[in-house]
């Protein structure tokens, strides 16, 4: 599929050369690229985006939250489809972006497929380890160097946090603790949650809770982990067809 630049942030995306019945938009997760959805998109062509700062798309000029991502994606999608409603398919962080677009611009969206997306702030998550908090406190007082703090981050930070640098790390800190109860309550379009029962990044309980919030939504579960879109692309093809024929 042809590759081109879309929207004011100049996002790189593949779009089908031929017209499509229902415009589908694929949104990948944090630290991933649009190739995540290659298997699904080869069967149900749509716009596959590299989100800002990932794959071939440049980093945003300054740190922004998930809302900034939603705005940038909607801008790119509108350039592709004009005023047509789109079916949004998002995995993990991409699912949050899809949800925010559907909540903020309901007239632009005809359906929503959300997979393996952390939707609620983890209630049980503990504070950072004591040693890390100590080093951070000492750094603020000027008693521990920035290098010492960075070393402590490397010891205690999550893999995604460590992999991010510069503005992407600021963005990660902004988005990591977001919670989406309010946005879920505003969703009116056909919605499916597609999940792996063994997902540790976004536990299945989150999908069950979200399904209760979104009226008429469906939940498809499989015995797999976080990457349900890689392990069960056929499930996405089926769900897309179900929505497209409504």
């Amino acid at each position: 599929m042809p590759v081109a630049t879309f929207g004011t942030l100049g996002l790189i995306a593949e779009v089908p050369a031929a017209p499509v019945d229902v415009p589908i938009v694929y949104l990948h997760g944090w630290g991933r690229t649009r190739s995540d959805f290659a298997s699904v998109a080869s069967q149900r062509p749509g716009m596959s985006l590299d989100l800002p700062g990932f794959g071939s798309s440049v980093q945003p000029p300054e740190a922004m939250g998930s809302n900034g991502y939603a705005t940038a994606v909607l801008d790119a999608v509108t350039q592709w489809t004009g005023t047509r409603r789109v079916l949004l398919v998002g995995h993990s962080f991409g699912g949050r972006v899809a949800l925010l677009i559907a909540a903020a611009a309901p007239d632009s969206v005809c359906g929503l497929i959300i997979a393996g997306t952390p939707l609620f702030r983890n209630q049980t998550s503990s504070r950072p380890p004591l040693l890390y908090r100590t080093v951070r406190g000492l750094n603020r007082l000027g008693l521990a160097s920035d290098a010492r703090l960075e070393s402590a981050r490397r010891r205690y930070g999550s893999a995604d946090y460590l992999a991010a640098t510069g503005v992407m790390r600021e963005i990660f800190v902004k988005v990591v603790n977001e919670s989406y109860e309010n946005e879920l309550a505003e969703i009116r379009c056909p919605t499916a949650f597609v999940w792996g029962r063994a997902d540790t990044a976004a536990p299945i309980e989150q999908a069950r809770r979200a399904q209760q919030i979104v009226d008429g939504s469906i939940l498809e579960e499989r015995d797999c982990g976080h990457d349900v879109h890689l392990e069960h692309p056929e499930l996405f093809v089926e769900t897309i067809d179900r929505f497209a024929h409504r």
């Binding site: 042809p2 590759v3 081109a4 630049t5 100049g10 790189i12 593949e14 071939s56 798309s57 440049v58």
Partner: peptide, 16 residues
């Protein structure tokens, strides 16, 4: 990236 059809996209890709 393959299937690139415009020079502006090449310019964008050069910034990654």
């Amino acid at each position: 990236e393959v299937g690139v059809g415009d020079a502006a996209t090449i310019q964008t890709l050069s910034q990654v």
